[in-house]
């Protein structure tokens, strides 16, 4: 038992399972007691959340989940394409300014930009995608530039000794040599997009999605539904995260990030 409290102590898988299981049980117990003790039920009880979940399911929760995931995937696909293009060209001295500027734009607030986007884009759905794309591209570009900077000089020299010209060095060391890192960077930045869903999906209510549902539930102070939706959003995010890790390890056997 003392080992459980000793810093840097290595525990067996079974012992870790006991610890993790205890934490989850404690969380639910705390939730149950807290929910029971409060007359106002400001924080919903387990039963209210379950009820909220069933209600959402019957009203087409699955369709809304797919709507949100599809929006997210389209935005990621476009933004990774833009970010890869910008960051892969960052080793070219003439274009370094462009990549650095895009990276710095992550500090720019979106509020003003959406006005100009609305003037240029007619479709609400496209508008949602591009808000996410602009937001995410800056973060992805920052991470991808960091990834390129972290490549040891030895790897570039190694390629050069194998008669690679500078474009081949870029292709072999940066593009092909770090494909698995791109998936990892998407995974790390995905959480940001997922968090933006609520804001972005409120732009166009007709498109539905988890963001719309949570906004709607919030309007009617339906806390059971809100917590149920939060848990669904969390579960979807974790599932996508898991899928990306699995994809990376299955597709790239050499990937040990």
């Amino acid at each position: 038992m003392k080992k459980f409290f000793t810093p840097f102590e290595k525990l067996s898988t079974a012992q870790l399972a006991v610890i993790n299981g205890s934490w989850v049980a404690a969380l639910f117990l705390f939730w149950y007691i807290f929910g029971m003790a409060s007359d106002t039920h400001l924080f919903p009880t387990l039963g209210q959340v379950w009820e909220g979940f069933l209600g959402l399911y019957n009203e087409g929760l699955v369709v809304h989940v797919f709507s949100s995931v599809w929006l997210c995937l389209r935005a990621i696909f476009i933004s990774i394409f833009i970010s890869l293009f910008i960051s892969y060209l960052s080793p070219i001295p003439l274009l370094q300014f462009v990549s650095k500027t895009v990276s710095k734009l992550r500090y720019l607030p979106l509020t003003g930009i959406t006005f100009y986007l609305a003037m240029m884009i007619n479709s609400g759905r496209t508008m949602q995608i591009w808000v996410l794309v602009i937001f995410m591209s800056t973060y992805l570009t920052t991470s991808l530039i960091g990834m390129i900077k972290d490549i040891p000089q030895e790897e570039f020299d190694h390629a050069r000794t194998l008669k690679c010209n500078r474009w081949e060095v870029l292709l072999q060391v940066v593009i092909l040599g770090r494909v698995d890192y791109v998936l990892e960077i998407i995974r790390q930045n995905l959480a940001i997009v997922w968090m933006m869903l609520v804001t972005v999906e409120s732009i166009l209510v007709a498109s539905g999605g988890l963001g719309f549902l949570i906004k709607n539930s919030d309007k009617f102070m339906n806390h059971g539904r809100i917590v149920a939706l939060q848990l669904v959003i969390l579960a979807c995010g974790l599932l996508i995260d898991f899928a990306l890790v699995k994809t990376r390890t299955v597709l790239f056997r050499y990937s040990k990030i």
Partner: peptide, 13 residues
């Protein structure tokens, strides 16, 4: 001229 560094760098992929 072939060059092998201390870390025996190879293409990781």
């Amino acid at each position: 001229v072939g060059f092998v560094d201390q870390k025996y760098t190879l293409f990781r992929n």
